[in-house]
Amino acid sequence: MSGFREPHELHKRRGGLNIGVGVVLALFVAVVFGLTVAKVSTGGFQMNPGGNMGQSQSQTGGGN
């Protein structure tokens, strides 16, 4: 039995990459969630707070 050996540098590097990718993915999920909450809370899931998309759609819909 070789027991507990010091991890090889290669495994350390792979571990660091896996943790890094995991953190990035977790942050991405958090940003999408936060963005969804912000969009819903500002009303009507408007595409652009000062812009045209959500407003123009509703205006066009009302006009027709």
Partner: peptide, 16 residues
């Protein structure tokens, strides 16, 4: 600098 206020989360996500 824009004259329109943006929700902080939308601003953060957009910059990101």
């Amino acid at each position: 600098a824009a004259p329109v206020a943006v929700h902080p989360m939308v601003a953060f996500a957009s910059i990101l």
